[in-house]
Design a protein around this nucleic acid. Sequence first.
DNA 1: TAGCCGTGGTA
DNA 2: TTACCAAGGCT
Length: 379
Amino acid sequence: MENWSAATIRDFRQTLLAWYDAEGRDLPWRHGRNPYHTWISEVMLQQTQVNTVIPYYEKFLATFPTVVDLAAADEPTLLKVWQGLGYYSRARNLQRAAQQLMTDYHGKWPRTAAELEDLVGIGPYTASAIASIAFDQVVPAVDGNAFRVFARLLMIDADIAKPKTRQLFTQIIQPIVDPKRPGAFNQAIMDLGSSYMTAKNPDPEHSPVKAFDASYRAGRVLDFPVKTKKPRPKPMAYYGLVIHSPAGYLLAQRGANEMLTGYWSFPLILKETLRNDESTAPATVAEDITEIERRWVAEFQLPLTLTPVGGRIVSHTYTHQRWQVTLLMADLPTALPLDFFPGKWVSAAEIADLPLPKVQEKMMQQFASQRDSRAFEKN
DNA sequence: TAGCCGTGGTA
DNA sequence: TTACCAAGGCT
């Protein structure tokens, strides 16, 4: 790999920041220097693209203008504001950290990356980003952009998928960060990583730091960064139960020990939990329906007559799981009391007021297209 | 350490 | 459709 001299480092800083001052993006969280604003934006931007974040950022700050408001937020409002942004533990952690700030720090922000890391949801990257942008601490913010940009500039061949590699990059970048403008430096690297030095279709030929790009000189831009790939999502077969009564549809809230915690969906049943013997022939849908009906009477005192909805199976892919949901429906003449079932009846018009994950929206769309295209309309 | 945790965009 | 990527953190 390359090793820059002090003169090259000075040159690089000057070139990078001149470009950033002229061409850097005008983003909502770059107005002013409010650590709360920086924090919210950085957490939203974790594994999420800028264009996706912008509307969520605006709505979040309008709903929770200060740390005090966030600390006191009610959970349904919080989850609803975050709906669709994904990685929902981020929202819960934001509130916990806001409460930490109020109780443990008396509402006063810690100003160093090391201290910021004590707040839940703030890891090494986010801590460094906040410390450099809001408090001028001279530390590199090592995110995917920094990995990619410096792996190419210096031809660093360490595997960025390995957690340990972060230390190496931090040590290499630390002396390059501009001590006068650390926040601008880190954000300039991110702008570089999302323009000329992208993962897929980079344009190193026209990059403002082309002269510093060793991988470009070597004609090996796409060889960096080195990153081992992750395993494919595991297929998971579910039944989704669309149970209707005069009181509305039956919705269940996701529990604390499962993904999508706190969000609402039609009851989901993992197909493989219906039979304890998988050595014999695979069950038919009719057999599974019989078993589900039997269990719902035994466990919830809810007599059902389920029928397949028809149409396509609802498919939804997460980072590590691929769900295939077969919809089954039941229409009950009366709204049975839910004394044993952890959920509630919700009228069609009010479902949209609940925090819903994407897979629930897909299930509603599929059901409506097969049964009643106006089923879940608001009015 | 490696697996878990969402969604939207792109080739 | 599939695969991979995008300003990571937690356990």
